[in-house]
Amino acid sequence: MYVIIMGAGRVGYLVARMLEEDGHDVTIIELDRERAKELSGMVNGLVIQGDATDTKTLEEANIKQAAAFAALTGKDDANLLACILAKNLNPNVRTSLRISNPKNKRIFEEVSDLKKYFDFVISPEEIAAEYISRNITAPGFDRVLFPKEGAEIVRFIIDEDSEVSGKLVRDLKLPKDALIIAVYDEKGNLIIPSGDTKLPKKGQIIVFAKNGVLSEVKELLEKKVKGEEVQAS
Rank of each mutant, 00 (worst) to 15 (best):
I136K: 04
A86M: 11
V11R: 01
I84N: 02
A8H: 01
L214D: 05
Q65K: 13
K198V: 13
T95K: 04
I192T: 14
Q65S: 11
L97V: 02
F120V: 01
V225Q: 14
N62V: 05
V217R: 08
F146W: 11
A209G: 07
K56P: 02
Q65D: 11
R98F: 07
R94D: 00
G41R: 10
T55N: 14
G227W: 09
E38V: 06
L220D: 07
L221A: 11
N135Y: 00
G188T: 11
I153F: 06
A8D: 02
G74H: 06
D22R: 12
Y131P: 00
E126P: 06
E229Y: 03
V111S: 02
L214M: 15
A78I: 12
E30D: 08
G203R: 02
E126V: 01
F141Y: 14
Y2P: 03
I153E: 07
M18G: 03
T55W: 13
I157R: 13
I4H: 09
L199Q: 03
V164G: 06
G23I: 08
L221H: 06
K202Q: 01
A71E: 06
N135C: 05
K173M: 05
Y184L: 14
I191D: 01
A52P: 01
V217N: 08
V154I: 15
P102M: 12
P91A: 04
A68M: 15
I136W: 05
E34K: 15
L81K: 11
N62W: 13
L179H: 04
R35E: 03
K218S: 15
P124S: 09
L14P: 00
V121H: 00
L31F: 10
K202V: 01
K115W: 03
T73R: 11
